[in-house]
C-alpha cells in the first residue's frame, strides 16, 4: 500500500461493521489485512465513477423478456420430515434445534 497519505475508501471501522452485518468476526490482524485488500479492490472499482450513467436504467435481469413468471396455485409434494431434517447439524424427530433464543 505504501502511500500513507492516500485516503482510505474503507476503514477498519467499516470492515468491523460489515463483518458484523455478515455474521463474521475477524481477528484484529485479519481486519487490517481485509481492510487493505478491500481498499485495493474498491480503489480499482472507483473507476466506475468515470462512466456517465445519467438516465441509464439499472439492469437487474439481463433479458428484458424476463417478466411475469408465475406458478399456478397447485399442490406439489413436500419432503418428508426426515428428508427435511436429514442435513441438520442438530435436530430431533420433528424439529431443527438451535441454541436457546431468549
Amino acid at each position: 500500500m505504501g502511500n500513507k497519505t492516500k485516503k482510505k475508501i474503507i476503514t477498519a471501522e467499516d470492515v468491523r461493521y460489515v463483518a458484523k452485518l455478515s455474521r463474521l468476526s475477524l481477528d484484529e490482524d485479519k481486519i487490517g489485512k481485509f481492510q487493505e485488500q478491500l481498499d485495493g479492490i474498491l480503489g480499482y472499482i472507483a473507476q466506475l465513477d468515470e462512466v456517465n450513467t445519467d438516465g441509464v436504467l439499472p439492469t437487474t435481469h439481463v433479458l428484458s423478456s424476463m417478466k411475469n413468471v408465475f406458478r399456478e396455485d397447485e399442490l406439489r409434494e413436500s419432503l418428508t420430515t426426515e428428508a427435511a431434517l436429514k442435513n441438520a447439524p442438530e435436530a430431533d424427530e420433528h424439529f431443527f434445534k438451535v441454541p436457546k433464543i431468549i
Partner: peptide
C-alpha cells in the same frame, strides 16, 4: 392460498412440524 407463495407446499395451519416443507 392452497400453496405457499414461492413453492407448491400446502399452506395450512396446524400440521405436524416440518411436514409442509420442500
Amino acid at each position: 392460498t392452497k400453496t405457499k407463495i414461492f413453492c407448491g407446499c400446502a399452506n395450512g395451519f396446524g400440521a405436524d412440524p416440518n411436514t409442509q416443507v420442500c
